[in-house]
């Protein structure tokens, strides 16, 4: 008992700065936002009455907020499975003892080191009509094959959601791939040897050895990627401003506009809480599914 006290003091000292940070920059703002969300709080109006659930009730009547939720769901549903599948494929490809493999790992990681704003600017250029990279590719193909596909397509205007999804996947590829790589390297080689002895094909080894043993890693990536996708903001702000015609108006961008273009701080806080509830629910569901799965495995074992 006597040694426990200094130990715990040291422990608190270690977590202290992090707790302070969490308290000041996360918990406190959450409490303040909860307070704001039940008040009509215009940035510049001195009159800030308590309105109860009114801000939340209004959200249901706001067709643009409903649209933002729908866009966010579509964005997440597209970008999470695709982003994870591509990262896993890249990790498997890069998890080989080839010479110079580290160079490739670095190259794949580079987009994640760049600022999202810079990446978004590059992505705008990629999608531009005539001078953009995609149209340049099409133009080169035309010249090579004698075809005449259009090179004046503004891909960002034509496929706004897909454009942003692709950027998100590209941007987040690095960290996801590295985590997958770490997971892959934790799988003992002996298991693959055993599988090989049993006559398992490459696909079977991936399906019955790699995937199940990678489950904890995959779970972590699914949860974090889902949260990141639900909170997408920067590329939307830089590339589309929610357009064309609100086709990419996602929840966080909508909140930003509500707060800083319309100055409806109370309304924006209510939106934040709705998004928070959605994220919390989805994350809890994911944890529940994961636990159910591991319970089933434990039972069958």
């Amino acid at each position: 008992m006597k040694t426990a006290r200094p130990m715990s003091v040291a422990g608190y000292l270690f977590v202290g700065p992090a707790m302070l940070y969490l308290g000041v920059f996360t918990l406190l703002p959450m409490v303040v936002a909860a307070y704001l969300s039940v008040h009509r709080w215009h940035l510049l109006k001195p009159d800030r009455p308590f309105v109860g659930w009114d801000n939340y009730r209004r959200l249901l009547e706001d067709p643009f907020f409903v649209n933002a939720i729908r866009n966010t769901v579509v964005f997440t549903a597209l970008s999470v499975p695709l982003g994870i599948a591509i990262a896993l494929a890249a990790a498997v490809l890069l998890n080989r003892g080839l010479p110079g493999i580290r160079v490739f790992r670095t190259i794949f990681y580079v987009p994640s080191v760049c600022s999202q704003v810079a990446l978004s600017m590059i992505w705008i250029w990629v999608t531009l009509p005539h001078v953009g990279f995609v149209n340049w590719l099409v133009g080169s193909a035309n010249a090579l094959l004698g075809t005449s596909f259009a090179t004046d397509v503004n891909y960002l205007q034509r496929f706004p959601m897909i454009s942003v999804v692709l950027l998100f996947i590209w941007n987040g590829l690095g960290p996801r791939m590295v985590i997958f790589l770490a997971g892959l390297q934790n799988i003992p080689e002996t298991l693959y040897e055993a599988a090989r002895v049993d006559g398992a094909s490459g696909w079977q080894r991936f399906r019955y050895v790699t995937l199940p043993l990678l489950m904890p890693t995959t779970f972590f990536i699914v949860v974090t990627t889902t949260i990141a996708a639900l909170q997408i903001f920067t590329p939307i702000y830089v590339m589309t401003q929610g357009g064309p015609n609100r086709a990419t108006d996602v929840v966080v961008f909508h909140i930003y506009k509500e707060a800083w273009h319309k100055f409806h701080i109370g309304q924006a806080s209510a939106m934040s809480y709705v998004l928070f509830s959605i994220i919390l629910t989805i994350s809890l569901l994911q944890f529940w599914a994961m636990k159910r799965r591991s319970d089933m495995i434990a039972e069958s074992a």
Binding site: V131, V153, N154, Q157, R158
Partner: peptide, 9 residues
């Protein structure tokens, strides 16, 4: 249209 104008560059 908007896209015709945008496509003109």
């Amino acid at each position: 249209t908007h896209s015709e104008a945008a496509a003109a560059g």
